[in-house]
């Protein structure tokens, strides 16, 4: 069976949830091989083995990690040439998409990004599903040329635990001169909030202009549900919440089990980031707000009254 390369998405060896999802998808297409770049492979191996990685290609030279995108794309191109995989899967994050894009040009392959599902097309290729136009359309696509390169969004598969050998394969690889073109000269880690990460969370509670800058009720409700906190661009532009929490076209695209929009009108650019959520709830003073067109459950009311009561009820019910 052909190998399927999965670029491991991790922070110092702590695998992000997308990695187990990608390994699960890889098993539909062939034999999963993880590609691990950077430090921490020992910490990651347990997870990689638990989700079926048969091999772990690892490369941890500083030349690969101090520079943006290009070295990883070159490493993957090198592996594609040596192992002729059935497909290459990456996380559809900003960086994952860029690595995928450079790789596709290098190896002359068709590229799919933002996939929400990947299946075998029954003929050795892939059949992917994406959404288009702010979630208004579903598109199915195939790759017709080269080794399919597919960037997959978080929450696109339920991770299935299957043990794999996770055989260690050290890759001896030196990137080209171009790879050092864009250098990462400083890294400022994000402040830890203790809440789940926005794109991975099962529940997201977001606040908009309607919070008037006071996110405390939104955060308290989120915490009662163990949810991540998001924000509309209006709230971000006002400086109330960091840009990294923005949900929408120019922020994060989330697809949780439950999305709660508080004081958000539901502009098309906001919808582009949350419309594929399984269940949608909104609290808005204005019964005409377009967000109500999307909801499974809506409350017309003041979020400063509704949220504290809901938080109290949730906490009480959880006992």
């Amino acid at each position: 069976m052909a190998e399927v390369l999965v670029l491991v998405d991790h922070v110092d060896g702590a695998c992000r949830k997308t990695t187990s999802e990608l390994l699960t998808i890889a098993r539909r297409l062939g034999e999963p091989s993880a590609v691990f770049v950077g430090a921490g492979v020992d910490a990651a191996k347990e997870t990689l083995a638990a989700f079926g990685a048969e091999k772990v290609y690892r490369a941890d030279a500083a030349a690969l990690t101090d520079y943006l995108v290009v070295p990883q794309a070159e490493l993957l191109a090198h592996l594609v040439a040596t192992v002729s995989p059935a497909a290459v899967l990456l996380a559809s994050s900003a960086e994952g998409k860029e690595i995928a894009a450079r790789l596709a040009v290098k190896i002359g392959s068709g590229l799919i990004t933002d996939a929400v599902d990947v299946q075998s097309d029954g003929a050795g290729g892939v059949m992917t599903t994406q959404t288009a136009f702010a979630g208004g359309y579903t598109v199915k696509a195939t790759v017709t040329h080269g080794v399919p390169v597919v960037a997959v969004k978080p929450n696109s598969a339920a991770p299935e635990a299957v043990s794999g050998a996770a055989a260690d394969v050290a890759v001896d690889f030196t990137p080209s001169a171009l790879a050092s073109g864009a250098r990462i000269s400083a890294v400022k880690p994000r402040e830890r909030t203790g809440r789940p990460e926005l794109t991975e969370a099962a529940i997201v509670v977001s606040g908009g202009r309607g919070t008037g800058g006071d996110f405390s009720k939104v955060e308290a409700f989120a915490d009662s549900l163990g949810a991540a906190v998001g924000a509309s661009r209006a709230a971000v532009d006002a400086g109330w919440y960091p840009h990294t929490s923005q949900v929408g076209q120019t922020g994060k695209q989330v697809s949780p089990q439950l999305y709660v929009a508080c004081g958000i009108s539901g502009a098309i650019q906001h919808r582009a980031g949350m419309q594929t959520s399984k269940t949608i709830v909104a609290i808005n003073k204005d019964e005409e707000a377009p967000i109500f067109e999307l909801v499974d459950f809506g409350v017309v009311g003041d979020l400063f009254a509704v949220l504290p009561q809901a938080t109290g009820e949730v906490t009480a019910r959880k006992g």
Partner: peptide
């Protein structure tokens, strides 16, 4: 979906849902 007007019980109804 179901849309309710908050009449002092909106939060409780939301939790119920």
């Amino acid at each position: 979906g179901t849309i309710v007007k908050d009449e002092g019980d909106g939060g409780a109804k939301l939790a119920g849902f």
